[in-house]
Design a protein around this nucleic acid. Structure first.
Lengths: 124, 124
DNA sequence: AGGAATATATCCTTGGAGGATATATGTCAA
DNA sequence: TTGACATATATCCTCCAAGGATATATTCCT
């Protein structure tokens, strides 16, 4: 038996369990491209892209948002209008658009590799 | 600027750089399904599935092989016939076949999500 | 009053990824 | 013959993304 805690079939992207590709960054960028939004809303919106099962983990979202802003891919504004719990509203920048475009290229290529792999499997 | 070393666009699966999804496990299982093989050969064969750029990192391959065997997805036999540097030849088991099938299901779903994402981008 | 929902933020641990490295041997050219 | 290179396997160690846990504050509803 393997000595490793999370060995083979139980680890690193095991189809049934584990943690598969989540594509959090492109999902956030994509959501913000459609309309400006804020952390709490993104947590519920982002799983709709299909890469996540439940709601997105808050810690992840807020950290990504912070990092994205640090890199100039998004900018935020503190919105205290409705006087409800104030929201930090983010929107995409030009740089953010460009990076999203790169992501889309990559994802398209990846989709190609995946379907090629599946085809190969079925022929084999 | 972000304080994190590998922030935003430079990290965790950034399209241009970083380290994207590699699908090492399914690639190994797939290769072994076609024919039994060994570490050194797999290192060169596996990148052909498109998920890797250069040759696969040896450390990764051997660790995966060891783990896979620990989980009963592959079995190995020490082949000292040709008397050259002896090879440990691996082949897929029934459990391995089953796990590969799960992987294929997952990959097909993932491909669907990716193309849907790209479509959404293009329409938006 | 108190519980649920809204909303943001930080901290800490875990574990996969993989680069670096060690080892051994057979081939081939200089 | 000797040294570089290819074949072949294996282990170790470090780094960092992931994300669960947790803290805080406010408003709505019962």
């Amino acid at each position: 038996m393997s000595k490793r805690k999370n060995s083979g079939a139980e680890s690193g992207g095991r189809p049934g369990a584990g943690k598969p590709e989540r594509y959090m960054q492109p999902s956030i960028l994509m959501a913000l491209r459609r309309k400006p939004s804020y952390g709490y809303e993104l947590i519920q919106e982002i799983p709709r892209f299909g890469f996540l099962e439940g709601p997105a983990p808050p810690g992840m979202i807020y950290r990504h948002l912070r990092d994205l802003e640090g890199d100039g891919l998004v900018v935020s504004e503190w919105e205290a209008e409705g006087s409800w719990p104030a929201k930090r509203v983010y929107r995409l920048t030009g740089d953010g658009e460009a990076v999203l475009a790169l992501w889309v290229d990559y994802m398209l290529r990846q989709a190609g590799h995946l379907t090629a792999f599946v085809d190969l499997y079925r022929r084999g």
